[in-house]
Design a binder for these strands. Structure first.
Length: 216
DNA sequence: GGCCAGGACACCA
DNA sequence: TGGTGTCATGGC
């Protein structure tokens, strides 16, 4: 199995090259992006992040001090702005209450502890937590998403009703525990999903068609 | 003009 | 534990 996963990784890397994830300038920007991209197109998230950047709010203090009503207007393009404005607030409130606003202190914990802590914050579920652990804290927590599930159930390596934790475990138990690998693999799977494995799959041109059983 | 994006939560059985 | 409804914008 390890061989199969690394084979798929190598095919994707050869096809697409480095994806340079996460597309952000700071750790905090990774977190903001991870929250805003929940069930949203990244293109729309970029518009929202740019609005925050112009207002100099891409930092914990900025979000902490800004009224939720103002945040809603700024992040509107990312969709679900009522919920997401609250989620940003919930995160920075936690950060200031527990770490005096020191993000590095929070991120510099053993990764299981950090993950559990993130999951305790309202609005941060498993995928967002793992994205933060991997792409902001640089700790080896494999991120799976809807694309990952769709791709690997079509390939036939996992059941199509597999839950998040089991799918995550599938990767972590069959890959070397390596941050760079986790980083690149997830990014490549998103790239593959976007371009070839949407609801209408482009199987004829798919880079991993040799190992795929096809859509079902 | 419809479909759907790099999910999470509330509520229900 | 698991299934379903809800949240919302903008690109294609």
């Amino acid at each position: 199995m390890r061989k199969n996963l690394l084979e798929i990784y190598n095919i994707l890397f050869k096809k697409f090259g480095e994806q340079h994830w996460w597309p952000a300038e700071t750790e905090f920007e990774v977190i903001v992006g991870a929250i805003l991209t929940q069930a949203a197109a990244w293109k729309n998230v970029e518009l929202a992040i740019e609005n925050l950047r112009v207002e100099n709010l891409l930092n914990p203090e900025g979000i902490y001090k800004t009224k939720e009503s103002k945040l809603k207007k700024l992040i509107r393009p990312a969709g679900y702005f009522n919920a997401k404005a609250r989620k940003l607030k919930e995160f920075v409130n936690f950060l200031f209450e527990n770490y005096d606003g020191n993000l590095k202190l929070m991120l510099n914990q053993p990764h299981e502890k950090l993950r559990n802590e993130l999951l305790s914050i309202w609005g941060i579920g498993p995928e967002t937590a793992d994205s933060i652990v991997l792409y902001a804290a640089n700790k080896p927590s494999f991120v799976v998403d809807a694309y990952t599930k769709r791709i690997f159930s079509r390939i036939g390596l996992v059941d199509d009703d597999i839950n998040y934790e089991d799918l995550k475990k599938f990767f972590e138990e069959n890959l070397p525990r390596n941050v760079r690998l986790y980083n690149e693999f997830h990014a490549l799977l998103v790239r593959l999903g976007k371009e070839y494995c949407k609801t209408k799959p482009l199987c004829d041109e798919c880079p991993v068609k040799e190992v795929c059983e096809g859509p079902n």
